[in-house]
Amino acid sequence: MSAADELTPAVVTAARKPRWSPTFTIGLILVGIHVAIALLTLFWTPYDPTSTTGGRLEPPSFIHWAGTDRLGRDFFTQIMIGSRIALIVGAGAVAIGAAIGVTIGLLAAFATRFLDDALAATLDILIAFPTLLLAMLVVAASEGASLWSAILALGIAMSAIVARLTRILAKRVLQNDYITASRTSGTSWPGVVVRHVLPNIWPTLSVNFALQFGIAVIAESSLSYLGLGAPPPNASWGRLLQEAQGTVYTAPIGAIAPGIALVTLVIGINLLADGLRDIGDPTRRISR
């Protein structure tokens, strides 16, 4: 057989370009809208979010797109600011969860048997706690409820899940021949982590981060709903929902609007997560 016979079919090379994926596109659009709105609120909102600009509990109109709340503040403005808070909390929680989780997970994967078992057991106990309960504990332990305590709480609660996933993924990658091959050519352990382990666990990890982002957004709403999230005047969707509870029959828009905002963002993130998996892994691109 000559070397030319070993040539790969052109199809394989052509398929390397990621295919267009409708789920990813829809996810990107949904999340993109929320990100755009969140950025917009930094410079401009239809009304001042804290001042009364209409009657109390006005229904949706051209002047107030989503009506007004109990104090006569523009509701659409508050939903817009809610986007910003949801995204900050999601991103912050994922960043903290990833930083702590990946570090602990990698340590466990490289640790001696005893330390690894101890870490794994600790993680299992932490995961057995419901995320929300753990987050509530952290908020309660910190000095009062604030946006940052909510982010920290969710990040810590999330880190256990990320750590366990990282540990398992890293262990599986470390068993591969290419790790040994890389080691025999003189790659140090830190080099192996940066060159091989992180890139190989990233496709799975990034999907998990995206899903955790969605979970964090919902969890933040739950915390705010319970009064443990960002306190007023921060317009978290959870707090808006909680405030709308008493007037849900007379002004249903107060519950519907934050609900729609929450659902569209979380669905968007989940669709994005789905699409990410296909983009992150070149071996998957041809199998699609």
Binding site: D177, Y178, A181, T184, G186, T187, R195, P199, N200
Partner: peptide
């Protein structure tokens, strides 16, 4: 490792990092 000794393994299917381009892999050592 690398300077005094290097190894070629049995399984070419698994001896290369699946997520790294060949050029980058050779560039490492």
């Amino acid at each position: 490792r690398g300077s005094s000794v290097a190894v070629v393994f049995q399984e070419p299917l698994t001896a290369l990092d699946p997520l790294m381009k060949i050029g980058t892999q050779v560039a490492g050592p």
